[in-house]
């Protein structure tokens, strides 16, 4: 009897939660603020600066969504989430969207009932070694000690890679990335492995960066992207197409600086549709006609966001690589805006 009451309550709660989740757009509009799950601090991707303003590559996407939905890129609240709390924070409705360097995997997509709506950064796991180790390929790391963060997909990838290549290694497990870097520099391990973007950032800040090399092998696919709750397709589409509008803007050469000029003069029908000058594209998603124009003018197009936060002009200095547009040999490809 008691058990059935409990289960009934639980089911009712879940149903209410499901109903509420279906209206994320309405919730955000009613609140007048987007709540974005972000990092507790990841160089270049998401962290508050000295004045408490959030900046970074992932943060810029949240701001673009806020600009599209609410017309103001500053109407967004960032909630720092840890690796453990991030998916629960999203599932329980504490955040509307999670843009936090989360890898799109089968089980996260299906088992956790989350939707990965796009890939804003194609990453992969790499290795960094000291130059004087004389290693030029990860396959030569037989018998090496490897510094690795516990509880991450990188740990599993590492085990898979060494097992597949039939070579041995000794893991040195550490709690967080700064600890891993510390151990590596102190000589506790021969190689240091994490996402390639993280390795580049770490190498950029080392005192003797010329003595360290990042090995060419990328041993895993790490598609990182924005996540929303399962079952609210409208909201998922809003996030997805906001991201695509940033890609299309880059493809069409629309930047933060020239967007007004383009809007006034363009004859390209796709651009006209996207900027809300023609047709009624925004309304299909329950947004204003100028929603995507707002999203692009917030922090510029995809390329501008990349270059401003993690690109080659920044100390992190990541190359576009897989994240170049498809027209330039990368994987970033947006379906037509029609």
């Amino acid at each position: 009897m008691k058990k059935s009451v409990f289960l009934g309550t639980l089911a009712a709660t879940t149903m209410i939660a499901g109903v509420a989740a279906a209206g994320t757009l309405d919730d955000v509009k009613a609140r007048g603020e987007l709540i974005c799950g972000s990092n507790t601090g990841l160089t270049g991707f998401g962290a508050p600066d000295a004045n408490g303003n959030w900046v970074g590559f992932d943060v810029a996407l949240c701001r673009a969504v806020a600009a599209a939905v609410l017309g103001d890129q500053n109407k967004v609240k960032f909630v720092p989430t840890t690796g453990e709390t991030r998916f629960t924070a999203l599932a329980s409705g504490e955040v509307d969207i999670l843009v936090r360097n989360s890898t799109w995997t089968y089980s996260r997509d299906n088992d956790l009932k989350l939707d990965f709506v796009a890939v804003n950064y194609y990453d992969g796991q790499g290795f960094m070694v000291k130059k004087d180790l004389g290693v030029s390929s990860a396959k030569e790391l037989d018998g090496a000690t490897v510094c690795i963060q516990t509880g991450t997909t990188t740990e599993l990838n590492l085990a898979d890679f060494f097992k597949f290549n039939n070579i041995s290694y000794t893991p040195v497990t550490v709690q967080d990335d700064s600890e891993a870097q510390r151990q590596y520099l102190a000589g506790a391990c021969d190689a240091y492995t994490t996402d390639a973007s993280g390795l580049a950032a770490a190498r950029a800040t080392m005192a003797d960066s010329e003595n360290h090399v990042i090995l060419p092998e990328i041993i895993s696919k790490e598609p990182l992207g924005p996540v929303v709750r399962h079952g609210d397709n409208q909201w998922g589409d809003i996030v997805r197409w906001t991201f695509f509008s940033l890609l299309i803007a880059e493809e069409k050469g629309i930047t933060k600086a020239n967007i007004e000029e383009v809007a006034a003069s363009t004859t390209d029908p796709e651009v006209r549709r996207m900027l809300g000058l023609e047709g009624n594209m925004g309304a299909m998603l329950g947004l204003d006609a100028g929603a995507f124009k707002n999203a692009i003018s917030a922090n510029g197009n995809y390329g501008e966001i990349f270059e401003a936060n993690i690109g080659s002009a920044t100390p992190i200095g990541l190359a576009r690589g897989l994240n170049a547009l498809w027209t330039q040999g990368g994987l970033q490809y947006a379906p037509p805006f029609r």
């Binding site: 507790t40 601090g41 270049g44 998401g46 962290a47 508050p48 600066d49 840890t82 700064s178 920044t314």
Partner: peptide
């Protein structure tokens, strides 16, 4: 800090370290 609050030892330090 384990639940994402900004404690002085780990939370703030993590943010400071995230600055390039």
């Amino acid at each position: 800090s384990f639940v994402g609050l900004l404690d002085p030892l780990r939370g703030v330090t993590q943010i400071v370290r995230a600055d390039i």
